[in-house]
Amino acid sequence: MYVVSINADKCEGCGDCIDACPAGILGMIDGKAQVTGAETDCMGCETCVVTCPNEACSLQEL
């Protein structure tokens, strides 16, 4: 199982990670990307990590 997290201090709200996430678990709240879907739906593909220009997304395997 994987868990994605987004550092709000680094996120500039570009939405790149949201558009790229194949699981569709990321969304925009108050101008920042956040996990809005079920964390357990994360596929561990690291697309959000690679796509984020500010290195705000991180992925942890549990």
Results as ranks from 00 to 15, higher is better:
residue 1 M to L: 11
residue 2 Y to G: 05
residue 2 Y to C: 02
residue 3 V to S: 13
residue 3 V to L: 14
residue 3 V to F: 14
residue 3 V to G: 05
residue 3 V to I: 11
residue 4 V to Y: 09
residue 4 V to E: 09
residue 5 S to F: 10
residue 7 N to Y: 10
residue 7 N to G: 07
residue 8 A to F: 10
residue 8 A to Y: 03
residue 8 A to D: 14
residue 8 A to R: 08
residue 8 A to E: 12
residue 9 D to Q: 12
residue 9 D to Y: 12
residue 9 D to S: 14
residue 9 D to K: 14
residue 9 D to G: 11
residue 9 D to I: 07
residue 10 K to P: 00
residue 10 K to L: 15
residue 10 K to D: 14
residue 10 K to I: 05
residue 11 C to F: 05
residue 11 C to H: 01
residue 11 C to M: 08
residue 11 C to D: 09
residue 12 E to R: 11
residue 13 G to C: 07
residue 13 G to Y: 05
residue 14 C to T: 04
residue 14 C to K: 02
residue 14 C to R: 01
residue 14 C to D: 12
residue 14 C to S: 07
residue 14 C to M: 07
residue 15 G to L: 14
residue 16 D to K: 08
residue 16 D to P: 00
residue 16 D to C: 13
residue 16 D to Q: 08
residue 17 C to E: 05
residue 18 I to R: 00
residue 18 I to G: 01
residue 19 D to C: 01
residue 19 D to A: 05
residue 19 D to N: 06
residue 19 D to F: 00
residue 20 A to K: 05
residue 20 A to W: 10
residue 20 A to R: 07
residue 20 A to C: 13
residue 21 C to W: 02
residue 21 C to F: 08
residue 21 C to R: 00
residue 22 P to G: 03
residue 22 P to I: 02
residue 23 A to M: 07
residue 23 A to T: 01
residue 23 A to R: 01
residue 23 A to G: 15
residue 23 A to N: 07
residue 24 G to V: 02
residue 24 G to M: 12
residue 24 G to K: 04
residue 24 G to T: 03
residue 25 I to G: 08
residue 25 I to A: 12
residue 26 L to T: 00
residue 26 L to Q: 06
residue 27 G to V: 02
residue 27 G to C: 11
residue 28 M to A: 03
residue 28 M to D: 08
residue 28 M to L: 12
residue 29 I to R: 10
residue 29 I to D: 13
residue 30 D to M: 13
residue 30 D to C: 09
residue 30 D to R: 11
residue 30 D to W: 13
residue 31 G to A: 06
residue 32 K to A: 11
residue 32 K to F: 04
residue 33 A to T: 10
residue 33 A to M: 06
residue 33 A to N: 02
residue 36 T to P: 02
residue 36 T to S: 09
residue 36 T to F: 01
residue 36 T to M: 14
residue 37 G to H: 00
residue 39 E to V: 10
residue 39 E to L: 12
residue 40 T to S: 15
residue 40 T to G: 08
residue 40 T to Y: 10
residue 41 D to M: 13
residue 41 D to E: 15
residue 42 C to A: 08
residue 42 C to M: 08
residue 43 M to L: 15
residue 44 G to S: 04
residue 45 C to G: 05
residue 45 C to F: 10
residue 45 C to A: 07
residue 47 T to A: 12
residue 47 T to S: 09
residue 47 T to H: 06
residue 48 C to E: 02
residue 49 V to K: 00
residue 50 V to Y: 09
residue 50 V to I: 08
residue 50 V to P: 00
residue 50 V to L: 12
residue 51 T to E: 13
residue 51 T to G: 06
residue 51 T to F: 08
residue 51 T to I: 07
residue 51 T to H: 04
residue 51 T to W: 03
residue 52 C to Y: 04
residue 52 C to F: 05
residue 53 P to N: 04
residue 53 P to Y: 08
residue 53 P to H: 04
residue 53 P to S: 04
residue 54 N to T: 10
residue 54 N to G: 01
residue 54 N to M: 11
residue 54 N to K: 06
residue 54 N to Y: 15
residue 55 E to D: 15
residue 56 A to E: 03
residue 56 A to R: 00
residue 56 A to Y: 01
residue 57 C to T: 00
residue 58 S to I: 04
residue 58 S to R: 06
residue 58 S to T: 12
residue 58 S to F: 11
residue 59 L to F: 02
residue 59 L to M: 10
residue 60 Q to V: 15
residue 60 Q to S: 14
residue 61 E to R: 11
residue 61 E to S: 13
residue 61 E to H: 12
residue 61 E to P: 02
